[in-house]
């Protein structure tokens, strides 16, 4: 009858409960309440949405704990928060505050350019970004309980999220069909832990959920990511940088649930104002690309 906290099942299971849902970035109590009312499955509390982080420049850190607390007290759905890559203390502070999930995020300025957090040491679960199966497997190896595409945050441009989702899916399929004696070489080529690839091969799928993130700007974008195999969607700047956040938030939620009901998505899209203005990824310099952070 003894209680076991922070087990793999409990940490991964929490993310499984979020499947088919939308997780929204919010910067204050009011936005958190709009997100909850629209049907979001969780909110990500942060000081600035990615597009504002981009515009502001400088070092982006964990949000002010007062803000995280404000959001936690405003809603009953789970609250996530971001810690810098490799920033053990930011992560421990968020865990101590009782946030439900930590995003070890490239949207913030990395604290460690060599090492990611050893997430298996924590009771709180983590979500991490990935561009391919190697990166996905390394994060799972460190104890991430949920994955998301990196995309290119704050751009309103879906192209990178699509690339990352398709890449991971294709590589999972490849590993699944591989013969046993090819697996070690694949592990070497991907830079992926062999045991994790083994699990993926045996199960025919990733052992954790993989959400879309980084560039979702319209209901159709959210539905596209579901269509190509995302388990759910993170929306960062898209909601609260649009003309009417309430409508927009609710439309994204509906488009995610009914991602192959095109009449509905058309109808939802008609009623929206202007989505956030996008950025062409090719116009971003190497240093401006957040997805290159982490490895």
């Amino acid at each position: 009858m003894e209680r076991q906290l922070g087990t793999e099942v409990v940490k991964r299971g929490m993310a499984q409960m979020q499947k088919g849902g939308v997780i929204m970035d919010v910067v204050n109590r009011e936005q958190a309440m709009i997100a909850e009312a629209s049907g979001a499955v969780a909110v990500m509390a942060l000081e600035r949405v990615p597009s504002d982080i981009r515009a502001a420049g400088g070092v982006a850190r964990m949000a002010d704990p007062r803000l995280v607390e404000e959001v936690m007290s405003a809603v009953t759905i789970p609250v996530m928060a971001k810690a810098r890559i490799g920033h053990i203390v930011e992560a421990r502070v968020l865990e101590a505050m009782g946030v439900d999930y930590i995003d070890e995020s490239e949207v913030l300025t990395p604290a460690d350019e060599e090492f990611h957090l050893l997430k298996s040491n924590f009771t709180v679960p983590f979500v991490c970004g990935c561009r391919d199966l190697g990166e996905a497997a390394r994060r799972i190896g460190e104890g991430a309980s949920m994955l998301r595409t990196k995309g290119e945050p704050g751009t309103g441009n879906i192209v990178e999220a699509v690339r990352h989702m398709r890449m991971v899916q294709a590589q999972v399929r490849k590993v699944t069909l591989m013969s046993d004696d090819e697996l070690m070489t694949e592990a070497k080529n991907l830079g992926a832990p062999y045991e994790i690839l083994r699990q993926i091969k045996d199960a025919g799928k990733l052992p954790v959920v993989n959400f879309a993130a980084g560039g979702v700007a319209t209901p159709a974008d959210a539905a596209l990511m579901m269509e190509i195999g995302a388990d759910g969607v993170f929306v960062g700047s898209g909601v609260f940088k649009s003309d009417s956040p309430e409508k927009f938030a609710s439309a994204i939620v509906q488009a995610t649930t009914y991602y192959n009901d095109y009449d509905l998505i058309g109808k939802l899209s008609k009623e929206l104002g202007t989505p956030m203005k996008g950025i062409d990824i090719a116009k971003l310099s190497q240093e401006e690309r957040m997805q290159e952070r982490g490895w």
Binding site: M1, T76, G98
Partner: peptide, 17 residues
Amino acid sequence: KRNAFGRQVESFEAKLD
């Protein structure tokens, strides 16, 4: 009672009769 055992860090596994 919702979230009766607490937030995610309080989530747990247990053998149940």
